[in-house]
Design a protein around this nucleic acid. Structure first.
Lengths: 186, 186
DNA sequence: CGCTTCATTGACACACATCAATGACAGTGG
DNA sequence: CCACTGTCATTGATGTGTGTCAATGAAGCG
């Protein structure tokens, strides 16, 4: 982005914006976690998304007048704020930046749809294999595991225990091979 | 869109494009269903997305040289084809069109993230209630059910039977009230 | 009227979530 | 340098919620 954001610190539990507030722009998490929640008439709250470091949120606020959910810091957090007016002006004027942003959104849409379709696979074994196939590198067989296994478990919608078990089972059946930070399909 | 697409008929099982093909553009389903699948080195296939009438797919192909998955018609289908070059030219020249497209992508990103977060709720009862809260109309209590209940079941990742049961249970507990095509939270 | 699909309810089994315990490992502080 | 602490990875035991199979009624449709 050719934009220079302002940085904002948030204490745990602090509110970044609330439903009905005039939109100020979109944000990127630098540190901590930001929860986007919506409250129903019954008072029941629904978590729409939990943004983690590196993730962008409230993008649609660029095209709306008010926010449609609340944003609260789960833990002590730092966020980069990209003002709406500047971002929109960039979309209007800067051809390269505009295509970048549009292309990035398009790529995210496909990624998210893949992730959602993956969740439709009930079996832990099949879901994990499908994820590995989708994440496989150039050779189509090797998958790099970046980060913790428990985080992988969360991204594919399994509990860590089930993931560990399933990995062990697949390895015992020689369907995969586990290396340091990598998994190879066989 | 100010674009006039070409229409294409597909027989059940017919392939619209395959992995590695040069990108021709993006598509909108008019009738039928189109499956986007990826094949792993092992031959295992992974369904990335099933596009239904009104849904757009292969948007990211506008920003890539080749397709990264196969598109096959599940049933006899009709798709509208929007050529890449024209679409990109329109994005360059027509400010309104590109803002529309970007806004639509941004909205889809948020919707998909909400849908994905919803899937993290294990309990059928809680997941359904969260969905209803998120979908509630202006009064925050009334949800219009467009389409079949079994389709609702699919979108929130439940089997139809479980959805029917959960709805009946919630109504018996007076947590919701069911009307003709509507559900009201109480 | 058959035929099809949807909505609904019942019965049952199993896969996954949950709780619990252990070892490995890194970081920390005395 | 060594207890101490915390987190992650791993495996075991157990229960339950959800999926699955099955049957029925209702409604739309040719």
């Amino acid at each position: 982005m050719g934009l220079k954001p302002t940085i904002r610190q948030l204490a745990a539990g602090e509110t970044l914006f609330a439903t009905g507030d005039a939109t100020r722009g979109f944000f990127v998490v630098r540190k901590g976690q930001i929860r986007l929640v919506r409250f129903g008439a019954s008072g029941r709250e629904t978590v729409l998304f939990v943004a983690r470091p590196g993730e962008r949120f409230a993008e649609a606020s660029l095209f709306a007048g008010t926010y449609h959910c609340d944003a609260q810091a789960v833990t002590e957090s730092t966020v980069a704020c990209f003002p709406k007016t500047e971002a929109l002006a960039m979309l209007q004027n800067d051809a390269d930046a505009r295509l970048d942003l549009t292309a990035d959104f398009a790529r995210q849409v496909m990624e998210l749809r893949s992730a959602l379709t993956l969740r439709d696979i009930r079996s832990a074994r099949e879901r994990l294999l499908a994820h590995l196939v989708a994440q496989a590198g150039a050779d189509g067989r090797t998958v790099a595991i970046k980060g913790l296994l428990k985080d992988l478990a969360a991204t594919i919608g399994l509990t860590p225990e089930v993931l560990y078990r399933t990995l062990a089972q697949l390895e015992a059946q020689r369907a995969i091979q586990r290396g340091d930070g990598t998994i190879t399909l066989t």
